[in-house]
Amino acid sequence: MDNEVSRTHGWLVTIQRRGVIYRKHFSDGVHGGKQKSFAAAKVYRDEIIANYPPFSMREYSNIVKKNNRSGVVGVCRYCASETRDMPEEKQRWFWVASWPLPDGRRKRVKFSVKKYGEDGAFNMALTARKDALKKLEGEFDPGAVRRKPRRRSKAASQASA
Rank of each mutant, 00 (worst) to 15 (best):
F122I: 09
A125V: 02
V145S: 11
M124L: 13
R146E: 12
G138S: 08
K134F: 07
R147W: 00
A121T: 07
K134G: 14
Y116W: 07
M124K: 14
A128L: 03
V113K: 00
L133D: 04
K115P: 01
K148E: 07
E139M: 12
R147H: 11
R146W: 03
L133S: 02
D141T: 08
G117C: 15
A125T: 02
R129C: 10
A121Y: 01
A125H: 00
D119M: 04
D119R: 12
K115I: 01
S112G: 13
V145I: 10
K148H: 08
V113R: 00
K148P: 00
K115G: 08
G120R: 06
L126K: 10
E118T: 12
E137M: 09
S112W: 01
K115M: 02
R147Q: 11
V113A: 11
S112R: 02
E118G: 08
V113H: 00
G143D: 10
R147M: 09
D141S: 09
K115W: 01
N123Q: 13
N123G: 12
K115L: 04
A132L: 04
V145Y: 02
E118D: 15
A125W: 00
D119C: 07
A121K: 00
T127R: 10
G138H: 06
A128F: 04
R129F: 05
K134T: 12
A132V: 04
K115A: 15
E118A: 15
A125K: 00
L136R: 01
P142E: 12
V145W: 03
E118N: 12
K134M: 14
G120I: 01
E139L: 10
F122E: 10
